[in-house]
Design a binder for these strands. Structure first.
Length: 946
DNA sequence: AAGGTCACG
DNA sequence: GACGTACGTGACCTTG
């Protein structure tokens, strides 16, 4: 049992205004605006969630303003007369605040003639006198007057700003006002408040006010001192405004002894009954919260129920099958409503209807995961909720004994579908439609125009993860999040492990349920997500950057790149030989045999057996044996460390590259086809998998040989074009850094310029240091991080950072403004409007919070760079075609580099076009104040093109 | 499945 | 005054 009672007083009226401005204008199923109410509801939830926490509430109440006038208007009729009318779509939300409060079974208190602040202050004092702790959930500066500890009872009052997730105690108040809480009223009386129409003293703002009060002790003393001041504007105004100030003092003073309509003991928080809450959430279409409530199987009175563990959630998902939440005006998913299309007649019926509706969700089923080698097994279509079908094309037939089910001839079916899928008049909606584009392109169908629910989700919700609920963009997750629906899983249908069967072996009734459901869900998700785009500002990024990129990247994946198998095999062999030699040497040095590839064994050998010094690390208690550790050991005079490093390098190169790339050659095409994810990186970058072609070695000579194995076909060459220092250029532009912009404009070596600015001279050493610092800036610097990298003390690193900020003004401001804005809004934005969400940026956990801060500093820069190269990619093929260069093929993207394959004879014509498209890619949306430098190289291999 | 390590921008 | 230290990725290996 907690001994101390802790009363939370929620300033409901103030909260709703802030929530209104911060949240998108959502509406509920009836069309009532509920954005602010939603914010309010989630805040109450979070507070109730903390019931068991050390500092959480035992008692709680919400205080509201009853009407717009109070006793203060009797003193000063103009009080709050300047307040603008609340926006039209906020007004209907005020009564809903009461509903929401009641839904949580919390007391809701309001009194005529008093403002919420007075009631809050009175309740806070009453509880404090009893020795309770009180937290006022508000960020209103007037309330800061009551913060502090009562020496008699020991009761404390502090504040909680839930939007910034910040506790406000006496120290924070003093930091803000320069005076302790009991003098805040005096400062406020001097400054006045234009919003509340409190006059204060004209010309006195927060700085002067707090200085005067701090200097003289209180308002009266400050005003009394005026006659003795030297002649100044301030003196005049103080003398003139004395009465105003004194009246202002009365206006800002909170009434602390109001009658309390409800005793504090009655505010006991005893858990939240789930039924009224569920009803409220349902009524307003807060389906994600409703699911969290369901997932908790009860009231949000215990943290583990509000935030179920993974296992709990899984169980809840399975259990919620029966009572899933349908979308407003969309019926629940009914898998028995789907049709299996087995005749040409029925297929034509679906196709005609799709033409009529001009919108169809499409999904393909295949024999494998990889879109370049998988075979088409069937196609599903959806035209409305539960209006979906599956068209099997290649089921059965692998087992000669079983009878093939009735299916339309695949060629005939595809021929019938082709005009629909290629028709400009019909939008094809997919979930990760790049996959279907590749499958269908290999069947002679060029699908267009398209929409993609996965890309939509990314444009809206990148980085977002509702507490405890994943933030991914996969269909199952999206269905759960937006539709409250649990999809059939592939595992359920095809099994897993050795017993797994291909989709073509699945019986038609089951296959229809699964496949048509995917199309149905995709259709519903589209209806759910697309309308959010204009509201939440995602249109430009989705329509101008990401969506146009889908067919472009699909084409790159299909085309693939040639690798020289013999060359890779030769390298594998050399690496193996050298590894064997190193292995015996290492074992000899160690005096015993062990698995070098096992960090555990290696650590024990180095630090226990051989007795080198070095520390444990991490929760696992295992020795760290990473590169920096081993390099330190080597410097201590441990030859084994160098041997292990070399062995590791070879092992990495062989397993990840020379062996794996040979295995990745597609037998049909003879080339390597990576798969790009358009939603892989939260910042908007692409990522590359199976194999990852964005991390082919280049930094070391030995690794570089692997690039030589990426080659052009006979008669062709590879052309590599990369943006030079694009992120630093963008930083210079976005932070408006004069010297850096100048250096880029002059084509200077940017790291050398940095060295000159910082150290006065450019040597190999200072340039290297400058380069490290430049990158540190892009990544969100910390003195410890920089110190570690440069091998200097933190103090010295701090001095360098200070110098950097001084020489490059703008950087510090950028960092400050970016983190502040992300803390306020919850997301960062690129120059093209791409949002990345940072749900942990206000976390109480410093490690978590600072991690988010660093990521937030970097995201606009990395993301803008990603936007720019994506725009270049989307424009590239049309530009090359228009120039009569259809044989130039874009093969790879490596974040700031594009790799092309082209006839040797096209190099001269293509190079300037590629350069121009890349250099101009930001325009006309954004006019950068620095040029974008492009470096181009060509050669028979990727290595030679650099 | 998780942790450690290391390849890239 | 604390993080245990730079941002963003993916693949492979060992170990539990």
């Amino acid at each position: 049992m907690a001994e101390t009672q802790h009363l939370y007083l929620v300033d409901g009226s103030a909260y709703i205004f802030r929530a209104y401005h911060r949240l998108p204008p959502l509406t509920d199923p009836e069309g009532t605006p509920v954005g602010a109410v939603y914010g309010y509801t989630t805040m109450l939830w979070k507070l109730a969630d903390d019931l068991d926490a050390a500092d959480g509430p035992t008692h709680m109440a919400v205080i509201l303003d009853k009407d717009s006038t109070s006793f203060r208007n009797d003193i000063y009729p103009e009080y709050k007369a300047n307040r603008p009318e609340p926006p039209e779509d906020l007004r209907p939300q005020f009564p809903l605040i009461r509903d929401a409060t009641r839904a949580f079974s919390l007391p809701c208190i309001e009194e005529g003639g008093l403002e919420a602040d007075d009631l809050i202050a009175s309740y806070a004092r009453a509880a404090q006198r009893e020795g309770w702790n009180v937290t006022i959930v508000s960020s209103d500066k007037d309330l800061m007057q009551v913060v502090g500890t009562d020496t008699k009872s020991g009761g404390t009052i502090d504040m909680l700003d839930t939007m910034k997730n910040a506790r406000i105690g006496p120290a924070e108040v003093e930091e803000k006002f320069g005076v302790p809480p009991h003098l805040v009223g005096d400062v406020l009386a001097l400054m006045g408040d234009s919003v509340d129409n409190i006059p204060g003293i004209y010309g006195v703002g927060p700085k002067t006010a707090s200085k005067l009060i701090a200097e003289h002790g209180d308002l009266t003393a400050a005003l009394d001192s005026a006659p003795d001041m030297k002649k100044s504007k301030l003196k005049e105004r103080l003398l003139e405004g004395r009465e105003d100030a004194e009246m202002s003092r009365v206006l800002v003073t909170l009434k602390e002894d109001a009658d309390l309509p409800m005793p504090i003991a009655d505010m006991k928080l005893d858990g939240v009954p789930p039924e009224p809450l569920a009803e409220f959430l349902k009524k307003h279409g807060f389906s994600s919260l409703l699911r969290r409530l369901d997932a908790g199987r009860g009231s949000p009175d215990r943290p583990n129920q509000l935030n179920p563990t993974k296992a709990e959630r899984k169980g809840a998902d399975a259990a919620s099958e029966g009572d899933r939440q349908p979308l407003p005006d969309m019926p629940a998913i009914d898998r028995n409503a789907y049709e299996c299309v087995q005749t040409m007649e029925r297929l034509n019926h679906w196709i005609e209807r799709a033409f009529a509706l001009r919108e169809v969700a499409v999904d393909t089923e295949t024999s494998a995961l990889d879109a370049i080698s998988a075979d088409l097994v069937g196609v599903s279509l959806a035209l409305g909720p539960n209006e979906a079908c599956y068209i099997p094309l290649a089921h059965g037939g692998t087992d000669l004994l079983s009878e093939k089910p009735q299916q339309i001839d695949p060629a005939a079916a595809l021929a019938a579908l082709k005009p629909l899928l290629e028709s400009d008049a019909v939008v094809k909606i997919g979930q990760n439609i790049k996959y279907d584009l590749n499958i269908l392109a290999r069947n002679g169908i060029a699908v267009a125009p398209i929409e993609d629910t996965m890309i939509l989700s990314f444009a809206l919700d990148a980085g977002r993860s509702l507490d405890g609920i994943g933030g991914g963009h996969g269909m199952d997750e999206l269905a759960q999040r937006h539709l409250g629906h649990t999809c059939m899983t592939f595992k359920e249908v095809c099994g897993t492990g050795k017993k797994q069967i291909g989709f073509g072996e699945v019986a038609l009734d089951v296959a229809t349920k699964y496949a048509a459901e995917d199309a149905d869900v995709t259709w519903r998700l589209y209806k759910h997500l697309k309308p959010r785009l204009p509201i939440e500002g995602g249109t430009r990024v989705y329509e101008r950057v990401d969506r146009p990129l889908i067919p472009v990247v699909a084409g790159m994946e299909r085309h693939g790149i040639q690798v020289d198998r013999a060359n890779l095999a030769k390298l594998s062999e050399e690496f193996a030989k050298e590894m064997a030699r190193l292995e015996s040497a290492i074992h000899e040095t160690a005096g015993q045999e062990f698995a070098i590839g096992s960090p555990k064994q290696l650590g024990e050998i180095l630090f226990d057996t051989m007795g080198y010094k070095g520390g444990r690390k991490g929760k696992s208690g295992q020795y760290s044996t990473d590169q920096t550790t081993l390099e330190k050991l080597e410097a201590q005079g441990a030859p084994i460390a160098r041997q292990v490093l070399e062995w590791r390098q070879l092992s990495k190169l062989k397993s990840t590259y020379t062996d794996a790339l040979q295995a990745a050659i597609n037998p049909r095409t003879g080339r390597v086809h990576t798969s790009y994810s358009l939603v892989g990186a939260q910042t908007g970058r692409l990522s590359s998998t199976d194999p990852n072609l964005q991390n082919i070695p280049i930094r070391t000579e030995i690794g570089r040989q692997i690039r030589d194995a990426f080659v052009a076909d006979d008669g062709n060459v590879l052309l590599a074009a990369d943006y030079s220092q694009i992120e630093l250029r963008l930083a210079a532009h976005m932070a408006d850094v004069g010297p850096l912009k100048e250096a880029f404009a002059e084509g200077e070596d940017i790291h050398a310029r940095t060295a000159r600015e910082m150290f006065g001279e450019v040597t190999r050493d200072t340039r290297a240091q400058a380069k490290t610092i430049n990158f540190a800036i892009l990544y969100g610097i910390s003195r410890w991080g920089l110190a570690g990298r440069l091998g200097v003390e933190a103090d010295e690193a701090q001095e360098m950072i200070d110098t950097y900020f001084k020489r490059f003004p703008g950087i510090q401001r950028y960092i400050l403004e970016t983190t502040e804005s992300v803390k306020q809004r919850g997301y960062s934005e690129t120059l093209f409007g791409r949002k990345t969400w940072f749900p942990r940026i206000n976390s109480k956990n410093p490690s978590e919070r600072q991690g988010s801060e660093r990521a937030a500093i970097n995201a606009p820069i990395q993301g803008t760079s990603a936007d720019i190269i994506k725009r270049a990619m989307a424009r590239m093929n049309p530009a090359l075609a228009a120039a009569g260069l259809p044989d130039v093929r874009m093969l790879l993207q490596v974040h700031d580099e594009l790799v092309f394959e082209l006839p040797e004879s096209d190099v001269e014509d293509a190079s300037p076009i590629i350069e121009r498209i890349m250099a101009d890619a930001a325009r006309p949306s954004v006019e950068l104040s620095v040029p974008l430098g492009i470096e181009i190289g060509t050669g028979k291999s990727w290595g030679a093109a650099h």
